[in-house]
Design a binder for these strands. Sequence first.
DNA 1: AGGCAATTGTG
DNA 2: ACAATTGCC
Length: 470
Amino acid sequence: MSDTPVLLWLRRDFRFHDHEAMAAAAKTGAPVIPVFIHDDQVEALGAAAKWRLGLAVEAFAESLSEKDSKLILRKGAPLTVLRALIEETGAGAVYWSRRYDKPGRDTDTEVKSALSDDGIEAKSFTGHLLFEPWTVETKTGGPYKVYTPFWNAVKGTDVAPEVKTVSELRTPSDWPRSEKLDDWKMGAAMRRGAAIVAKHVNVGERAAQSRLSNFLRDRLSAYKTQRDVPASGGTSGLSENLTYGEISPRTIWHAGYREMAEGNPGAETFLKELVWREFAWHLFFHWPDMAERNWRDEWNGFDWRRDNNDAEAWRRGMTGEPFVDAAMREMYVTGTMHNRARMIVASYLSKHLMTDWRVGLRWFEDCLIDWDPASNAMGWQWVAGPGPDATPYFRVFNPETQLDKFDKDGRYRKDFIAEGQANPPETATDYFEAIPESWALTPDQDYPDRLIDLKEGRERALAAYEQHKG
DNA sequence: AGGCAATTGTG
DNA sequence: ACAATTGCC
């Protein structure tokens, strides 16, 4: 048993259960020093994501202190920070969970080789995904570009079992100095909205675990149909926790798989949704510029409208299209948006308003507490047209038809659009509390007229596409 | 190499 | 009924 400490570098893995890097660190028998580094990538996060990450860090630090451990906070470039900590603590190893975005991977590769040169053991572990992206290939080699074959390929394969919950971490004789989370002001860009979004978050590992078990108990069996109805609360809501690693995808997978084995009718659909996330990360791994560039090159040069006044109305939930506006306001008030609503608002912005999908993606990045670069890159490109999916251009969501199908009783509209209601619910009035004052909107003004005739917008988009194809 | 299967939709 | 192109085997 060594007394040379191990640094446990945490990024998006704020949990004790099924945490390979943490379990390995604990198993060495050496003192473990958990570290979170506020680097440029953290600095660059959108307002809501940065704020929510701060909550995750805070909650995790608290869980550590319940175990008489600590979370050391430092700001700076990872390699510089880690070297300083090694110097201060005499640590001989750094463990972490792998990440799969390009900047993250580049940083980690650099850190690993530099530390190895220093004679430090630098070790990365799995944890963010079910499968390593380089291990899932088509029969002819290469990554999958279509979801269904991807699903067929992975659904039968064994997902590694969960790693046991780490119950204690040996503490070092001296703790290195830590910065204060409050000094980082991670909620600064939230302006006056944080207190409202705070009503809707579910922070930490315990919250994530109970969210999963409540979902399995109460909503999984009806998931197949209820997941499509935004006002029904039929989804798991776990994306928020998956984003920060407050629960592992393997935990969700195995729980869903057990339900499927017991014949629960919603289980397979649920697992498929988890695998959509997986698919997005595999795509993002193989096409790291997917959040900036058209996945299909032939879309380069398509005559999108850049940012514009219609897009601003879209951001503000003032398009006059109730499904779109309810959804955009849901995102502003709660920090999340229902999956079906995401498809509808994305289709509306990119087709009816013919606005560059990257304009929409950037707004999502600023507003979502479950911001996930891979899922958003895939989702936006899939809806807008350039993404990995065949023949999407004529598949234009009609937000009015969608209301009939998925908001028949008008609950979603009622929950988030205050205008015209005698006694609007808090979720609807909160919108006017959450938005910047400069938008100058009030709940007693008239609901806006439609920005564009739906038929006209659809035809304009299809015509532009036809013309671009030549 | 050629056939088959999509594809969270629309009208 | 329809759309048609691409991916996968």
